[in-house]
Amino acid sequence: MTYPAPRLAAYRPGTGLDDQLAALGYACIHGWPDQRPITPALVRSRLRPPGEAAAPTLLATVHATGGELIAAAALRHPPAPGGTGRLWGPVVHPAHQRRGLGTRLLHTLAEPLAAFPGTAATAEIPAQRTAAGAFFTRHRWQPTAGATLLKATLPLPAAPAGPATVALRAPCPGEDLTEPLGLLYAAARPEEPAPAATGAWDRWQADERYTSHCLTLAHNHDGRLLAAALVYPLAHTAPGEPAEALLGDLLLRPPLAPDRLDTGRRAAAHAVAAAHRLGAATARAVIPDHHQPVVDCLTALGFTITAPIGYWHAPTAARTWPHRATAAALRSASRQPKDGTATGTGARSADE
């Protein structure tokens, strides 16, 4: 079968392409450990540029002759300067795999990637998906630190009551958590760049899945934040898939003594219970390997470890091309019609 060249465009949220990307994504993960509902809202949360000033996400797509989206890959800039950008995909419909589409999509994004500011890594890849790891290895991407995928059936067992000196609550209407949450984030994630901490509150609220009911704050008697648990409930109507809640973040202020870990467990349980009340039947979390205390918190709550997760980083050599490559790609992408379809660049181009 002959396929058209991939088309490269700036991603525009809120078009019919979101539905097509959701359907394609679900077809590619069905039957794997990371199977879950894929909705247009989830697509937008993954591909929407992180911040108004950020460069647009670049989206490469391949459509069949009849117009069906059969393959896609996207390159999103990091959420903060000095952070890590993300390659989503390539994802190729199972009926069209092993025909070189993944490689063509990856090649389409090679020039923008060459001028990428900082590092770029793949999305989460379960260890069972050995073909995906082999794909990136062939293209000289390097495996890096992994993570753990955990899942739970809701409701969770009741968390034990904690000390009266620690209170759990949701944000108050109109409350500005920029400073206290930024301080907690910086303490819990010292390895991340400072803008990731200072922008955490704005970033969390900007996600359309955010609801204040599913953010739990744990603070002591003087109001200092000790922990925060953010859960995104994912409403959908897909038959055969239970509504899911994603534990997007669990921040614990050091030192991680037993009482602090207990506070983290209570905060996570509180936020997940709020999502369950909104209809979630399952919960999932992806926790980096260097955050083992968080994994311990979740398993103590009733989460089970489902699969180890891997990430691959783009090869350094791939990012040494002239910086004008990204400018050219963005100029071409800016010619995308308003209906969300992409104009072709003619670039030769390549799966999670």
Rank of each mutant, 00 (worst) to 15 (best):
Y3I: 00
Y3S: 02
P4A: 12
P6Q: 08
L8M: 06
D19R: 14
L21I: 10
A22S: 08
A22D: 09
G25M: 08
Y26A: 02
I29Y: 07
H30V: 04
W32T: 12
Q35K: 00
R36V: 00
R36M: 01
P37R: 03
I38H: 04
P40H: 04
V43H: 04
R44G: 00
L47F: 06
R48G: 00
A54I: 02
A55T: 01
A55E: 03
A64E: 08
E68A: 14
A71F: 12
A71N: 10
A72E: 03
A74I: 04
H93W: 11
H96D: 03
E111M: 09
P112D: 07
L113R: 14
P117V: 08
R129Q: 13
R129S: 05
F135M: 05
R138A: 14
H139N: 10
Q142H: 10
Q142R: 13
G146K: 09
A147G: 07
L154T: 09
A164G: 14
A167R: 15
A167H: 15
L168R: 14
G174F: 09
E175N: 02
L177C: 07
P180R: 08
L181H: 03
G182M: 11
Y185I: 01
A186Y: 03
A188Q: 04
R189N: 09
P193T: 05
A197I: 06
G199S: 05
A200G: 00
E208N: 01
R209T: 09
H213L: 12
N220C: 15
G223C: 09
R224A: 15
A227Q: 10
A229N: 07
V231F: 07
V231A: 05
A245P: 02
L246H: 14
D249N: 13
P254V: 10
P258K: 13
R260K: 09
L261M: 10
R266G: 06
A267I: 11
A269N: 11
H270A: 15
H276M: 00
A283Y: 13
A285P: 13
V286M: 03
H290D: 15
H291R: 15
H291A: 14
V294M: 02
V294E: 08
C297G: 02
I305G: 01
A307R: 09
Y311W: 07
R319Q: 15
W321I: 04
W321A: 15
P322M: 11
A325N: 15
A325G: 02
A327M: 10
A333H: 13
R335E: 01
D339L: 03
G344F: 03
G344M: 02
S349F: 06
A350W: 08
D351I: 06
E352L: 08
